[in-house]
Amino acid sequence: MNKGFIESVFGYIGGVCLFLWTIITKLYQVPRSFKLIVNQIVSMGIGSLPIVVVVSLFMGMVTAYQAALQVGGYMPESYLGMAVAKALMIELGPLLTGLIVAGRVSSSLAAEIGTMKVTEQIDALESLAVDPIRYLAMPRFVSGLISLPILTVISELVGFFGGGLCAVLLFDIRPIVYIEGLRVNYFPHELWGGLLKALCFGFVIALMGTYYGFTTKGGAEGVGKAATKAVVSASILILFFDFLIAWIVF
């Protein structure tokens, strides 16, 4: 590793941290930007809902199917519900929701803001005495923090339902037995740890999307690059935080 590389890595981290800090200093203006935040939650959260629901449904079904297939003969029937619930809460719910939303939202955030950057719309905001970080970045950031945990809970519910369908239809397990599985070996920190992950993923998705948007240079080509970089870095950071939180919480 040469010196230039290390310098550029620290330069990058410093740049992201500085950007994050400018967003944080705008958080006190949340009440004033309420409408903007709600709009973002609608486009981020509601917009991502269909794909999250479809993916979660199948994910729950596959999880139940494999669990039943692998250990079906050896374990009590109520353990199937437990296995599905745990897999979803601890890992699959937050991670898949995070990766789906990263692909969908962080790229579109970067492209949207990047386009505004290269077409002088950000300069225009400044010239109208509207702070672009307060007007564009902060609402998207807050909305990411709110949307991801909510989407994750929905994903987990839908996934559990999908697993139930599979259990009931394919393995003749009574619905009540499957649902009772939720209570077997339940530890609250599994739910909260998963939601903490979701919060982190929302943070990462919004931060990477807005950061690459605001640092876009050049024309349409720069916008495309920004979108790609946002998705790639958000996905990598999501996997990193997934491991980090697993390590700390569990």
């Binding site: 949207e112 002088e120 719309q121 300069d123 225009a124 905001l125 010239s127």
Partner: peptide, 13 residues
């Protein structure tokens, strides 16, 4: 100060 940008720079959203 009002500014009219080269590309008009209207917010398309």
């Amino acid at each position: 100060m009002g500014v009219v940008f080269q590309s008009s720079a209207l917010l398309d959203s």
